[in-house]
């Protein structure tokens, strides 16, 4: 299965992926409009910054997903290898946040639910982070 991978050698820590991700998942076509809302759209990818090394992290879509195992309502499930969240079933207990070893589950504090990377499948598009990375540090590849 193709997943999103980050090559830290080329990650510039520019944070563009976060903005393209948030924009894509806001449902708005225009980034300016997406960010002009009162409630700023949330990115599902996050750039970890160090002095010499930066890299973007988002859901690894683990083969053995602790988040899915721990989900108390069945909101998280595996769909063809992609871990997806049904926000209508999420009660915001944050068990998944606690159990994710990569810290990739994002809290939507206002809506009291979680949100996470679904490889942009729900948008039927190439992942926005991959598309928008200016240095091809984020790639969509089948490495299994």
């Amino acid at each position: 299965m193709k997943k999103v991978y980050v090559n830290e050698e080329w990650c510039l820590g520019c944070h563009l992926c976060e903005y393209y991700c948030a924009g894509m998942n806001s449902g708005e076509r225009d980034l300016v409009k997406a960010f002009s809302r009162e409630k700023k759209p949330l990115p599902r990818i996050r750039v970890e910054e160090g002095t010499d090394v930066n890299f973007a992290v988002q859901c690894r879509h683990c083969a053995v997903p602790y988040c899915v195992k721990g989900c108390i309502t069945g909101a998280l499930s595996v769909n063809d290898g992609v871990i997806v969240c049904d926000q209508t079933r999420c009660v915001g207990c944050l068990t998944c946040v606690l159990s994710c070893p990569y810290g990739c589950i994002v809290r939507d504090e206002e809506a009291h639910v979680i949100t996470k990377c679904d490889l942009c499948l729900s948008r039927n598009a190439t992942p926005a982070c991959v598309e928008g990375c200016p240095n091809k540090a984020i790639v969509l590849e089948d490495r299994e």
Binding site: L12, G13, C14, H15, L16, E18, Y19, L31, V32, F35
Partner: peptide, 13 residues
Amino acid sequence: HTRCIKCRVCERQ
């Protein structure tokens, strides 16, 4: 400024 979303990419780059 009506288009700027303050992502600070310009600053970092």
